[in-house]
C-alpha cells in the first residue's frame, strides 16, 4: 500500500555542499554565458567574412572582435572571482591535464586572445588603421608587422578563429557535461547545446550593433537556425533524462516539474527560444523592420539557460537520489 520510504539523516553540514551542493554561484554562469557569447561571435564573424569574401564595412562590425576580447576578459574576471584561492590562479598555466576540461578551457582561452586580436586587426579599415597607428606611438613598427601578418594570412586566421570559437563554445558545455556526479549535466549533448546557444547569443549580440543590411539578413537566418538546433538539442537532453532510470528522472524533474521549472519554461524555452524564433521568421518572411527586443530576448534566454543548468545541475547530486 505505502510506497517505499527512505529517510536519510545526515550528520554532514559542510558549507557549500549541504544540504545541496551550491559550490558554484553566479560567477560560473556569467563566465559560461560570456564564453559562449564570444565563441558565437568568433564563429559568426569569421563565417560571415568567409561567406561574403568581404570584410565588415561598418565601424561597429570592425570593432566586434575587440569587444569580444573585452567580454571574454569580463568572463575570466568572473571565473577569477569564483576561485577560492585567487593567488594560485597561475597554477592553471603550470600544467596541462588532459582529462580536465577546465585545463583545456584555460589553455583555449589563451589562444582566444591572439586569434581575436589578429582577426580584429586584419579586419580594420584604412581609416581605423591610421587612427590606431597614431595612438600606439612607439609600438608602431610592431603593429605594422602584426598587421601585415594578419592581412597576409587572413583566411587561415578566419578558419582558426572559427575552430577556436567552436572549441570554446563546446568546452563551456563539456565543462559541465563531463561531471558525471551531477545527473543533469552528465550528457554528451551539453557541449553542442552550449555551442548552439553560444552561436545564437553571439548572433543576437551582433544583431544589436549596426551592421550592413546584408550581414544583418544573414545573421538573422543563422540565428534562427541556431535557435532551432538549440531547441532540438534541449529536447534530446530532456528526453534522454526522462526515458532514463529513476535517478535521471529526478534530474529531469528539476527542469520539468520542480524548483526551476517556471524559470526554465518562461525565460528559456518560451521567452528565450520560441518567441525569438517566431519573431525572426516573421522578420525574414515579411521583411519587417528589425527590433532590438528579439536579440534582447535571446540574450536573456541564453543567460537564463546557463544559470538554470548550473543551479539545477548542482541540485542533482548522486547523494540525493533514492
Amino acid at each position: 500500500m505505502n510506497p517505499q520510504l527512505v529517510e536519510i539523516t545526515h550528520g554532514r553540514t559542510n558549507p557549500g555542499i549541504d544540504p545541496v551542493l551550491h559550490a558554484w554561484g553566479w560567477e560560473v554562469p556569467v563566465y559560461l554565458f560570456l564564453g559562449g557569447l564570444v565563441a558565437g561571435v568568433m564563429v559568426l564573424l569569421a563565417a560571415l567574412e568567409l561567406k561574403r569574401r568581404a570584410k565588415a564595412t561598418t565601424p561597429a562590425g570592425q570593432a566586434m572582435p575587440f569587444v569580444a576580447i573585452g567580454l571574454i576578459s569580463l568572463g575570466m574576471g568572473a571565473l577569477f572571482l569564483d576561485l577560492a584561492h585567487k593567488v594560485h590562479v597561475y597554477r592553471f598555466y603550470l600544467s596541462f591535464e588532459a582529462t580536465s576540461p577546465m585545463s583545456w578551457g584555460a589553455w583555449i582561452l589563451m589562444i582566444v586572445y591572439p586569434v581575436l586580436l589578429l582577426q580584429g586587426l586584419g579586419g580594420l579599415s584604412d581609416g581605423a588603421r591610421g587612427w590606431l597607428r597614431a595612438k600606439v606611438g612607439g609600438l608602431g613598427t610592431l603593429l605594422d608587422r602584426v598587421q601585415a601578418f594578419a592581412d597576409a594570412k587572413r583566411r587561415p586566421i578566419l578558419w582558426t578563429s572559427m575552430a577556436v570559437g567552436a572549441g570554446l563554445g563546446v568546452y563551456t558545455g563539456l565543462l559541465l557535461g563531463t561531471l558525471s556526479a551531477r545527473l543533469l549535466w552528465n550528457s554528451a549533448v551539453m557541449g553542442p547545446l552550449f555551442l548552439a546557444s553560444g552561436v545564437s547569443t553571439g548572433a543576437a549580440l551582433l544583431l544589436c550593433v549596426k551592421l550592413d543590411h546584408e550581414a544583418h539578413h544573414t545573421l538573422v537566418r543563422w540565428d534562427t537556425l541556431a535557435i532551432g538546433v538549440e531547441l532540438a538539442l534541449l529536447a534530446v537532453l530532456l528526453l534522454g533524462l526522462v526515458t532514463g532510470g529513476s535517478a535521471q528522472q529526478v534530474a529531469a524533474d528539476t527542469l520539468l516539474g520542480g524548483r526551476y521549472t517556471p524559470y526554465f519554461w518562461s525565460l528559456v524555452v518560451v521567452g528565450g527560444l520560441a518567441v525569438p524564433l517566431v519573431l525572426n521568421v516573421v522578420e525574414m518572411r515579411r521583411g519587417l523592420r528589425p527590433t532590438l527586443l528579439t536579440p534582447a530576448l535571446v540574450l536573456i534566454g541564453g543567460f537564463a539557460l546557463r544559470t538554470l543548468v548550473v543551479a539545477a545541475g548542482q541540485y542533482t547530486s548522486f547523494g540525493l537520489m533514492p
Binding site: 557549500g16 549541504d18 576561485l83 584561492h85 594560485h88 590562479v89 556526479a181 551531477r182 547523494g319
Partner: peptide, 27 residues
Amino acid sequence: HDKCTGCKACIASCPYDARFVHPEGYV
C-alpha cells in the same frame, strides 16, 4: 594545497560530496 586554485571542479565531480573548500582557500 599549494597547487589548488579553489576552482571547485573536483567538488562538483565527486558523487559522494566528500570534498569542501577549506577556509584557507584550498579544497
